[in-house]
């Protein structure tokens, strides 16, 4: 029974993949819909990473698109400039892709660390502004690098991403983040959010955990960027301007900060909704704006704030006599 519960999420994800593929084959889903699903999952990943920083650690970062850009450009540079598909035997390509995505994540993480370390001593909204500024500076810097296309954009990136890869990374992100949040590390982060000063007196090195959350969140954004680059086949610095960062912020708080379920719901819903409203052409953004206001007025904590689906909370068996209210 327990083993079944443990593997249920994996089975669910596999079932989801099979279902989408089947519907695609049967012609129910067009490739356009599958594409949107893939975007939704990538957005989920970025939002989950941001949730670790803002939702669980209580910081306020709003420059997430910058880290997506770093990851995307880095991994694309690996597969396009360093090891272009033309010099690779086909069997090696997935491996190179995988490695490039991880490199993108690591480099974004390093950027996150370097930015987080000095700026996390700024309180609250000042941190937000610095992250926003760094995002914009990163974007300006990309414009200055001709090797990756500068202001014209980076084209010719091999389209290695597909539904399978994205589902795997999506599932992996959720799993790893869940494990982190329900570990001693995650509790330290949550303590920083709840009361930084009290956390310090509980022996939590608050700076360390804030920087750690920031680094991990940035790395996840970088991984998502790598997937995005190889899905689109093309990157442009303006894709990652601060309005894009605001999108992630909206996904996060609309879904409910501090809830992984919320991030997944928020990002998925708000990625798909504007696409559904496409027939309204220009009016869809008008409606999107109003919908956002009403959502917050009626559910200020977000769609799923403060709650979590059970499979995202690891169970710990209590000793006999202590089962209590669990």
């Amino acid at each position: 029974m327990d083993t079944l519960r443990k593997y249920l999420p994996i089975l669910g994800l596999a079932a989801f993949y099979v279902l989408v593929m089947a519907l695609r084959k049967a012609g129910v889903l067009t490739s356009y819909y599958v594409q949107i699903l893939m975007f939704a999952m990538i957005n989920c990943m970025v939002t989950l990473g941001l949730n670790l920083i803002n939702g669980f650690t209580g910081q306020f970062s709003i420059g997430q698109a910058g880290f997506v850009a770093v990851g995307g450009y880095t991994s694309a540079a690996v597969t396009t400039l360093l090891l272009p598909s033309s010099v690779l035997v086909p069997a090696l390509r997935p491996l190179v892709f995988l490695v490039s995505v991880f490199i993108g994540g690591i480099v974004a993480g390093i950027f996150g660390y370097l930015i987080g370390k000095p700026s996390l001593r700024l309180k609250g909204d000042y941190l937000a502004i610095v992250t926003l500024a760094f995002g914009e500076i990163i974007r300006s810097l990309i414009r200055l690098i001709p090797q990756v296309g500068g202001p014209r954009g980076f084209s010719g990136i091999p389209r290695y991403s597909n539904l399978l890869w994205i589902v795997l990374f999506f599932g992996g992100t959720i799993w790893v983040l869940r494990n982190y949040i329900y570990s001693s590390f995650g509790r330290a982060c949550i303590a920083c959010r709840e009361d930084e000063l009290a956390a310090g007196t509980m022996g939590v090195d608050t700076t360390k955990y804030k920087v750690m959350a920031f680094t991990i969140g940035s790395a996840i954004a970088g991984v998502a960027g790598g997937l995005l680059a190889h899905l689109l086949g093309y990157l442009h610095p303006d894709q990652f301007n601060y309005l894009k960062s605001i999108d992630f912020l909206v996904y996060l708080y609309a879904g409910g900060a501090g809830s992984m379920t919320g991030s997944i719901m928020g990002a998925t819903l708000l990625t798909i909704l504007p696409e559904m409203l496409r027939f309204l052409s220009g009016w869809r953004l008008v409606i999107y704006g109003i919908a956002l206001v009403f959502l917050m007025l009626f559910r200020p904590q977000g769609i799923y704030g403060g709650k979590e689906l059970p499979f995202l909370i690891p169970k710990i068996r209590r000793p006999e006599g202590y089962e209590g209210g669990q």
Binding site: N179, F185, A191, E194, D195, A199, M202, G203, M212, P314
Partner: peptide, 29 residues
């Protein structure tokens, strides 16, 4: 107190410095 956490979680956070497993095992649980 950490107001939005259970009494048990409040106590667990105080045990934090005594818990020694590493980051990678934590990721992989």
């Amino acid at each position: 107190l950490f107001k939005n956490l259970s009494a048990l979680d409040n106590i667990k956070i105080a045990r934090h410095p005594r818990i020694t497993y590493g980051l990678v095992p934590a990721f992989l649980r």
